[in-house]
Amino acid sequence: MRQLPLEMTIAATVRTAECAGHHGLAVTLGHSPDDPLALRMDLYVTGAELPDTTWVFGRDLLATGLILPTGEGDVRVRPHGEDETDVELVSGRAWCVVRMAADDVREFVAGTRCAADSCDEEIGTALDRMLAETLRRGATNTDSQPPHT
């Protein structure tokens, strides 16, 4: 059974370097079974029909960030208390922290689980095929050759 793309819009707040305090915005989290290890986060700051910005990052980064701080570089995710999750986005000197209800994030991540499991299975099958083909051809490791006498 093929999983359909998943989209979920979440009410969130954002805090930036330029603006003090938290401001409301809509966040749409998206996941496609064609790229099961990634997710898309669209930020609708101005209320426009199209997102003001879109970030793409690892699905596992968001899943892990529900439990403990994770990430390096441009995207970091961490719990904020027990009920909220923060996603920190950094671009050059600009940054923002998007805060969402942890239950909403957890629900989204759970909906992506089937595709991630399928991807793990496909990778395992491909590796098994490569190993079987290598062994069938009788490839040898030159490091394990007996010494010449």
Rank of each mutant, 00 (worst) to 15 (best):
79 P>S: 05
96 C>D: 00
36 P>V: 01
131 L>H: 12
128 D>A: 15
114 C>F: 12
105 V>D: 02
90 V>A: 09
142 T>R: 15
70 T>A: 14
119 C>Y: 15
70 T>I: 10
26 A>S: 14
67 I>D: 15
65 G>V: 02
73 G>H: 03
67 I>W: 11
76 R>F: 06
136 R>W: 10
124 G>C: 08
15 R>T: 09
20 A>P: 04
118 S>N: 12
147 P>L: 13
105 V>I: 09
111 G>W: 05
137 R>G: 10
141 N>P: 03
149 T>Y: 12
11 A>Q: 14
92 G>C: 06
3 Q>A: 15
10 I>K: 01
98 V>D: 01
14 V>K: 04
135 L>R: 14
25 L>M: 15
147 P>T: 07
71 G>S: 04
77 V>C: 05
143 D>P: 04
37 L>F: 12
26 A>M: 09
134 T>E: 11
49 E>W: 08
106 R>Q: 12
93 R>H: 13
68 L>K: 13
149 T>S: 13
85 T>V: 07
81 G>W: 01
47 G>F: 07
93 R>I: 09
106 R>D: 10
21 G>W: 07
15 R>E: 11
58 G>F: 06
59 R>N: 03
98 V>R: 00
3 Q>R: 11
77 V>L: 02
112 T>N: 03
54 T>Y: 05
85 T>R: 04
30 G>S: 11
126 A>H: 13
6 L>N: 03
27 V>I: 14
43 L>K: 04
130 M>E: 13
32 S>I: 04
33 P>I: 00
47 G>I: 04
141 N>Y: 12
22 H>Q: 15
87 V>K: 02
63 A>N: 01
62 L>A: 01
112 T>E: 00
66 L>P: 01
87 V>F: 01
131 L>S: 12
58 G>N: 08
137 R>N: 08
37 L>C: 12
76 R>G: 00
19 C>H: 15
100 M>D: 06
9 T>M: 07
132 A>H: 13
26 A>Q: 11
108 F>L: 05
62 L>C: 06
147 P>R: 11
130 M>N: 08
147 P>C: 07
119 C>Q: 12
1 M>L: 14
26 A>K: 09
8 M>P: 04
85 T>H: 00
142 T>K: 13
105 V>R: 02
129 R>F: 14
7 E>V: 10
43 L>N: 03
115 A>I: 06
75 V>M: 05
1 M>I: 13
74 D>F: 04
110 A>E: 15
115 A>P: 03
68 L>I: 08
31 H>R: 09
6 L>C: 02
139 A>K: 08
111 G>I: 03
10 I>F: 00
81 G>D: 08
29 L>F: 09
20 A>H: 12
9 T>Y: 01
116 A>S: 14
46 T>N: 14
39 L>V: 05
7 E>T: 15
81 G>Y: 03
59 R>L: 10
16 T>M: 01
2 R>Y: 07
57 F>T: 02
92 G>I: 02
93 R>G: 12
75 V>G: 02
111 G>H: 05
66 L>M: 10
26 A>C: 06
95 W>H: 10
112 T>L: 04
75 V>P: 02
68 L>N: 08
57 F>N: 05
18 E>L: 08
40 R>C: 08
103 D>W: 07
35 D>I: 07
86 D>F: 04
59 R>H: 07
60 D>W: 07
108 F>N: 00
38 A>V: 09
83 D>L: 13
